[in-house]
Amino acid sequence: MIHPSYVELMKVVNSDAAEIGEEPVVNSRYSIVLASARRARQIIAGAEPFVANPKCDKPLSIAVEELYNGQVRILSEEEAQQLEESKKVQSESENVEQNVDTIEENEIIENL
């Protein structure tokens, strides 16, 4: 597979920011390399590729293809922090729901 150039990838990755008028997410090839490597490691670890029929079955090639197709996004630091916070809040609310369910089950058992 012939990989798109870094310049092409940067244009694709930054296309959302350009439409909105924000700062580009990716300012260097280094960011593209890091994102591709991280996604390749996820695929190696067992994550399902988002590409239905990848042109090549090497994890790095799949990761680059996903980035180029816009199936994987590189988040800005602010977006990454917001995502982590929302995951934390969601996890905490799920824990609260589980605790409430456990309390209700215990009450039912005690009332019998």
Rank of each mutant, 00 (worst) to 15 (best):
E19C: 12
P54Y: 02
E78C: 08
A47V: 01
N111E: 10
V13N: 03
N69E: 10
N69S: 07
E104M: 15
E66W: 04
V25D: 03
S28N: 14
V7F: 09
I2Y: 01
M10H: 08
E97K: 15
Q90W: 00
L60H: 08
A18E: 14
Q71M: 12
L112Y: 09
K11T: 07
Q98H: 08
N95M: 11
N99A: 12
V51D: 00
S86Q: 15
E104F: 11
L75D: 02
E85G: 04
E105G: 05
S15V: 02
N111S: 14
N111D: 08
L9I: 14
S36N: 06
A40K: 11
A80N: 05
V96N: 04
I20P: 01
P4S: 08
E79L: 11
I2T: 15
D57S: 13
V26A: 15
E22P: 00
D101G: 10
A35C: 09
E22Y: 03
V26I: 05
Y68W: 12
V26T: 09
S15N: 14
E79F: 08
Q82F: 00
P59Y: 00
V100P: 09
L34G: 01
V72S: 05
I109C: 06
C56G: 12
L60Q: 04
T102H: 05
V96Q: 15
S61F: 10
G70H: 10
K87F: 01
C56E: 12
L60Y: 14
M10W: 06
R41S: 07
H3T: 14
E84C: 11
E85C: 01
L75C: 11
S91T: 11
E66S: 04
M10G: 03
R41P: 01
E22N: 12
E23I: 03
A63H: 10
L9V: 13
V26K: 03
Y30W: 09
I44Y: 00
K58S: 02
A52I: 13
E65L: 06
L83S: 14
A45Y: 00
Q82G: 11
L83H: 13
K55Y: 02
E92G: 15
V12D: 02
E110N: 08
A80Q: 13
L67Q: 01
V25N: 12
P24W: 02
R29H: 03
I109S: 09
Q71C: 00
S28G: 08
E94W: 02
N95C: 11
K55I: 04
I43P: 07
R38Q: 06
P49C: 04
N106A: 13
C56W: 03
P4C: 04
V12W: 01
E110L: 08
P4A: 10
R73N: 06
P4L: 10
P49R: 05
I32E: 03
L60D: 08
A18F: 00
A45T: 07
K88Q: 10
E23M: 05
N14S: 11
I2V: 13
A37C: 00
Q42S: 05
A63Q: 05
R41M: 06
E84W: 13
L9K: 13
I32V: 15
I109H: 07
K88T: 11
Q81H: 08
E48D: 10
V12T: 12
I74F: 01
A47H: 04
Y30M: 03
V7W: 06
L60P: 01
Q98F: 09
E65F: 02
Y30D: 13
S28F: 06
E65R: 05
R38M: 05
V51P: 00
